[in-house]
Computed example of a mutant assay.
Amino acid sequence: MKKPKKTIMGVLILLLAIGTGGYLWKTVRSHEPADDGLTLYGNVDIRDAQLAFKEQEVVREVLVEEGDTVTQGQILARLDSDRLTSQLKEAEAQYAAQQEVVRRLTNGTRRQEIKQAEARVVEARVQVRNAARRVRRLEKTAPVGASTEQDLDDARASLDMARAALNVHQESLALAREGTRKEEIAEAKQVLEARDAHLSLLRQRLADTVLHAPAKGIILSRILEPGEMAMPTRPAFVLALSEPKWVRAYLPEPALGHIRQGMTARIHSDSFDDRFFDGRVGFISAQAEFTPKSVQTAQLRTQLVYEVRIWTDDPADELRLGMPVTVTISVPPSIAQSENPKKGFRPGMEG
Rank of each mutant, 00 (worst) to 15 (best):
P252M: 11
E57Y: 05
T20R: 01
R234E: 05
Y250M: 01
R222F: 04
V210G: 04
S147H: 08
E32K: 08
A155N: 13
V11C: 12
L304G: 01
E139F: 04
E289G: 03
I185G: 10
G282I: 07
H31V: 00
I310T: 10
P347Q: 10
L192G: 01
Q337W: 04
R248I: 08
P244Q: 06
D45F: 02
A197M: 08
E123K: 12
K293A: 15
A207H: 11
L84M: 08
D160K: 14
P292V: 13
L319C: 02
K342N: 08
G348A: 06
R156M: 06
A174L: 15
L192H: 02
T148H: 06
L220G: 09
L138F: 15
F345N: 11
F272H: 09
R120K: 11
V70M: 08
E193P: 04
D35G: 08
R266N: 03
L202F: 08
M1Q: 10
R275H: 08
P226W: 03
T328C: 04
Q127S: 12
M263N: 11
P341W: 06
A34K: 10
P235V: 07
R177G: 03
S86D: 14
T233Q: 15
R181I: 02
L14Y: 02
V58D: 05
L206G: 07
Y250V: 01
E225K: 12
Y306W: 10
P226Y: 02
Q150N: 11
L159D: 01
M161L: 12
V305C: 03
A93G: 03
H198F: 05
V58F: 07
D154F: 11
K343I: 13
V135W: 03
L88R: 12
A162M: 01
A124Q: 02
D154K: 11
G19P: 00
D48V: 10
E66W: 06
E339M: 15
T233N: 15
D278Q: 09
R280Y: 13
Q98M: 00
G67K: 05
P341Q: 10
P214M: 06
G73K: 07
I13P: 03
E228F: 11
N167T: 14
D273A: 15
L199N: 14
V70E: 06
N340G: 09
E183V: 07
D151T: 10
Y41K: 00
Q87P: 03
R111W: 02
P292E: 09
S285P: 11
H258Q: 13
L24R: 10
A336R: 02
L51V: 05
